[in-house]
Amino acid sequence: MRSPIKSRQERAAARGPADTVPIHLYGLRRGTVTVLTLISGAFAVFILAPVLWLVINATKTQANVYGTPGFWFARPFHLFQNLSALGRNVSGAGIYLQWLGNTLVYAGSAAVGATVLSAMAGYGFARFRFRGANGLFYLVMSTLLVPITSVALPLFLVYAKVGLVNSVWGMILPSMVSPVGIYLMRTYIDASVPRDLIDAARMDGASETRIFLRIVLPLTVPGLVTVLLLTVVAVWNNYFLPLIIFSRNGLYPLTVGLSSLSHAAETGSKAELVPVLIAGGLVTILPLILLFLFLEKYFRGGALQGSTTG
């Protein structure tokens, strides 16, 4: 949420003369810029305040969470006790670290799988003509319209039949299929992999596999990273599917685990679980933030490329 003026200067410094277009040439007046900056500033506060609250309250005891101002620290400093409780089964609901490990496995494998499948399917839809291509594509898209809550029971019955209840595959396999990913990859490949290039490669005798691996994939890295990130986030935050299919806390991902911890903390017939819950919430969002920072350049490059060449 930097101000446009500042970021213009920054970009100018970073990329040279191409970006040094004065603001007024975009048709923006200084007043407009200020207003827009204020609005985005307000949004930044709106988004970041809860995160700040998490950081502060993860350092408190339960009585202090309720009894002291939410946006300032209080003694005693309890962060390390709260964090170390994440490694133990403090609530009877299971161990936080185990849920974190599960989430990493589910999100990691589902994201890699979804990226590979989306790239293949997207390439197929974008660059091959076959009977039923359009119908098939619309079928894939239409699955976006079915709310998962409405199919909860049939989903469970099917899972029970094929032995996917209480199985990690029950979580990973369906998460590897991403209609949004397929759509994105189709659009991206349409925009950034010229047909002529593929024809030229075929002419030179490259096999289809080689074309896909050596030409299509390298040209679509920003798109791939986008799908990867989107899937990681989707699986990381998925609550409903694991809630239905898992009845063992050793298999829970963070979402369901935190919810059971929250239930234990709420009815509170027991020790101080609320600050542990808050610390758990904080640790839950850190990996996603790190992932975004790490992959940001690919992600941003992807968005730009799609918009200029499409």
Binding site: V146, I148, L155, Y159, L173
Partner: peptide
């Protein structure tokens, strides 16, 4: 979104 595609995977 998983349900429709599930049977394909599960099979």
């Amino acid at each position: 979104m998983a349900a429709v595609l599930l049977s394909a995977c599960a099979g």
